[in-house]
Computed example of a mutant assay.
Amino acid sequence: MLKVENLSIYFEDNGKIQEAVRDISFQMQDREILGIVGESGSGKTMTALTIAGLTKEHEILERGSILLDDTDLLKLPSAEMRKIQGKDISMIFQEPMTALNPTMKIGKQVEEALILHTVLSKTERRKTVIRALEDAELDHPDLLYGKYPHELSGGMRQRVMIAAAIVCKPKLLIADEPTTALDVGTQESILKLLKKLNRKYDMGILFISHNLRAVNELCSRVLVMKDGVILEEGITREIFENPRTEYTKELIAAIPGHTRSTAFYELLCAEAGE
């Protein structure tokens, strides 16, 4: 479904060309949940933004290819890419309060993708928005439709972002640190929701995070990035049980109270309810 080949990303910083991502390649299958982990500056978010086409308006140079069902996204003009954004590819960001427009009501914000990508009537759009809010497990969606973001809790705002991202039933949902700003209990519920939506709509999820517990709970495979390159990739359990690089070992060892061992992985599984 998604094939990234020899992707390099460069940008200009104070007159100097900086390399954010260097010659990375990976694939995603239909309905797969793939995790990308790494510290800040590893290139994981820049990779996600490039796949979503959100770097095209900036002074950024990309080389390589990003194939979505055999369409090279890097070769598409901005107008063609906008036809894909929100319809075939959607993105959830870390902080919904900054991603949502504080001056627009919730219903109108979720509806925007439907206005751009469908020919539904106003009544049909409202019904579709209500269903998306229900799918995001928000109570009383008919009442939420007319509320503003500041009237909702952080967890509710994140669910609104999810509703807006899935309203057109995309092939690929990119989630960039979607649980970082939430308390532990809300994080758990959001992860369970993403897993449920993955099964319900058969959509792939690219999950960007530095939270290894979240990656373990949600993702079937994982890529480990550092300094713009992929250090290793594989089935999540195998990466946790037998990390090949020192960096991955350090990431696992950095979680307080745990060691780099099969017992550590099994503890994560127990905490995830698996």
Results as ranks from 00 to 15, higher is better:
Leu100Gly: 04
Asp72Thr: 05
Thr262Pro: 00
Asp13Leu: 13
Phe264Tyr: 15
Phe26His: 09
Glu274Gly: 13
Met28Gln: 05
Met161Ile: 03
Val37Leu: 08
Ile190His: 06
Leu76Gln: 01
Ser25Trp: 12
Ala164Val: 01
Glu188Trp: 10
Phe264Pro: 03
Gln29Leu: 13
Leu267Asp: 13
Ala132Glu: 08
Arg237Lys: 15
Glu57Gln: 02
Asp70Lys: 11
Ile9Cys: 11
Val184Asn: 04
Gly273Pro: 09
Glu232Gln: 07
Ala254Phe: 04
Leu116Trp: 00
Ile17Cys: 10
Gly185Pro: 04
Leu116Lys: 08
Ile230Leu: 12
Asp69Cys: 01
Leu100Ser: 05
Thr123Pro: 00
Glu238Asp: 15
Val110Gln: 04
Asp23Asn: 15
Ala136Ile: 05
Thr98Ala: 11
Glu62Phe: 05
Asn216Glu: 14
His210Glu: 07
Met28Pro: 01
Lys122Trp: 00
Lys56Gly: 02
Lys192His: 13
Glu80Ser: 06
Glu241Pro: 00
Ser220Gly: 15
Glu151Ala: 15
Glu188Gly: 10
Ser42Lys: 09
Ala163Phe: 00
Leu100Tyr: 03
Gln18Arg: 14
Asn216Thr: 14
Lys226Ala: 13
Ile174Ala: 00
Lys87Val: 02
Ile130Asn: 07
Gly107Asn: 07
Asp72Tyr: 02
Leu267Trp: 11
Arg159Lys: 07
Glu271Ser: 11
Ala164Tyr: 00
Ile205Cys: 08
Arg199Met: 12
Leu49Gly: 03
Leu54Gln: 03
Leu7Lys: 10
Leu143Ala: 10
Leu73Gly: 05
Met46Phe: 10
Phe26Leu: 10
Glu266Val: 06
Asp227Arg: 12
Asp69Ser: 06
Ile66Arg: 06
Gly228Lys: 13
Val160Ile: 09
Ile205Asn: 09
Tyr201Val: 03
Leu194His: 12
Glu137Gln: 15
Lys44Ala: 10
Val215Trp: 12
Glu112Gly: 01
His58Lys: 08
Asp202Trp: 09
Thr50Tyr: 03
Tyr10Lys: 15
Gln27Cys: 07
Ile106Met: 06
Lys169Ser: 15
Pro243Gln: 05
Val224Thr: 11
Glu151Gly: 06
Leu114Trp: 02
Gln29Phe: 11
Ile255Gly: 01
Ile252Asp: 05
Tyr247Trp: 09
Gly43Ser: 11
Glu238Val: 03
Pro96Lys: 14
Gly228Asn: 13
Gly154Phe: 09
Val4Pro: 03
Glu95Asp: 15
Arg199Asn: 14
Asn198Leu: 12
Leu218Asp: 11
Ala163Arg: 02
Lys249Ser: 09
Ser90Asn: 04
Arg244Cys: 04
Ser261Asn: 01
Thr71Asp: 05
Thr186Lys: 04
His117Ala: 04
Leu218Arg: 11
Phe93Leu: 05
Leu100Thr: 01
Asn211Arg: 07
Leu173His: 03
Lys147Ser: 15
Lys108Arg: 14
Leu223Met: 14
Ile115Thr: 05
Val167His: 05
Phe207Gly: 08
Glu217Asn: 12
Gln109Cys: 06
Thr179Pro: 03
Gln109Thr: 03
Ala263Asp: 13
Gln29Glu: 15
Lys75Ile: 01
Gly257Glu: 01
Ser25Gly: 11
Asp202Met: 12
His210Lys: 10
Leu218Asn: 11
Lys122Phe: 02
Ile239Asp: 14
Val21Trp: 12
Glu250His: 10
Leu152Gln: 04
